[in-house]
């Protein structure tokens, strides 16, 4: 079994923050924590945390190029503990390697953004926020790497000690769903409530009222699938996995010559005839002129919300929300269908 290991500049021994801009390097054999894995580490890759964050494409291209040449059976990244930048690099590299057929495992604190970056492609072993949990983190990664390296698959998250990857894998069961439904219901009536699907996250708390409308910066966000006519970015009409941003700079109204809706979940005849009724730009412009609020944020954020998973919708909300906060937006008109 051939193992490759990724470490940041600090754990690879190149230096601390002053070396965070260091480009990607490749070293033969195990380095630093890699010696504690108990695995045949053939090669170690490293990169400065800042460099990875600021030049992600270049860093990934270099690292993945080496991985393609070295052809390891498994890639181990980290552990990154609570370090967000290091964790992000570990999660992203592990994801891209796994996408290319090299199974990968990493380790970090469950809140680390690197967990999201791994997108379920890589196994992520949960760790303590600080290096105090180094020994357990290395042992946890090594156990999974040993399996992955020989083409095996770890068991469930609970059994194998990794964070659930939001992957739902189909398994054959002897007892049919219909019979299980009756069993489950009788148990629930008897006071024992069990479920095969964990309930998703809780509802969203309503925000407080907008404190001062006269200075409010308002953004338009929609799940109606409203896009420039011709759908230049090919927004899908259902099961969307992304959102799009279009400038409203100099746009006074959404007329049907310039805009359409590609939503696959309702009859779009009226929306296409008068796009302002699905995204009320005309009314917001009039209100802006009258001084009813401060200003309109000069972008429209759009997706088509039909058959879209809650996980994706939550991600859209987080990503769009982060951008709006950055821009100082204080209120949003969100149109749904």
């Amino acid at each position: 079994m051939k193992v490759a290991h990724y470490l940041n500049q600090f754990f690879a021994g190149f230096g601390a923050e002053e070396q965070a801009s260091m480009g990607a390097v490749r070293v033969e054999g195990a380095v630093g924590p890699g010696r504690g894995l108990g695995l045949p580490v053939a090669v170690t890759y490293s990169c400065g945390d800042d460099y990875f964050g600021e030049a992600e494409d270049a860093a990934l291209a270099q690292l993945l190029g080496w991985i393609a040449k070295d052809r390891p059976d498994v890639l181990v990244c980290g552990p990154a503990f609570g370090s967000g930048r290091y964790g992000y690099a570990c999660g992203s590299l592990a994801r891209e390697a796994a996408r290319r057929g090299v199974p990968a495992v990493t380790a970090m604190e469950p809140d680390n953004p690197g967990v999201v970056a791994a997108e379920g492609w890589a196994y992520v072993v949960p760790t303590t926020p600080t290096v105090i949990g180094m020994r357990q983190a290395l042992a946890g990664m090594a156990a999974i790497a040993r399996l992955l390296g020989i083409g095996g698959e770890p068991g469930s998250p609970e059994e194998a000690g990794y964070l659930p990857r939001s992957i739902r894998r189909n398994v054959r069961v002897d007892r049919l769903g219909a019979d299980r439904a009756v069993d489950l219901l009788l148990a629930k009536i008897a006071g024992d409530t069990l479920t095969e699907i964990a309930p998703p996250i809780a509802a969203v708390e309503p925000p407080p009222p907008v404190p001062n409308m006269t200075s409010a910066l308002i953004a338009l966000v929609t799940e109606s699938g409203c896009v420039p006519r011709g759908n230049p970015d090919h927004l899908t009409s259902r099961r969307s996995s992304r959102w799009l941003r279009y400038t409203l700079d100099g746009v006074a109204t959404l007329d049907s010559r310039g805009y359409e809706t590609v939503h696959g979940g309702f009859d779009t005849t009226f929306a296409n005839g008068e796009p302002n009724r699905i995204v009320p730009l005309d009314a917001l412009r009039a209100s802006e002129r009258n001084g009813n609020y401060g200003a309109l944020h000069p972008f429209l954020y759009t997706t088509s919300g039909v058959d879209t998973s809650v996980a994706n919708a939550v991600r859209f909300g987080q990503e769009i929300g982060a951008e709006l906060l950055d821009a100082g937006v204080t209120a949003v008109v969100l149109t749904g269908t």
Partner: peptide, 8 residues
């Protein structure tokens, strides 16, 4: 059908 899905 004899299927269900489990976390992985």
């Amino acid at each position: 059908r004899p299927f269900r899905s489990v976390s992985a």
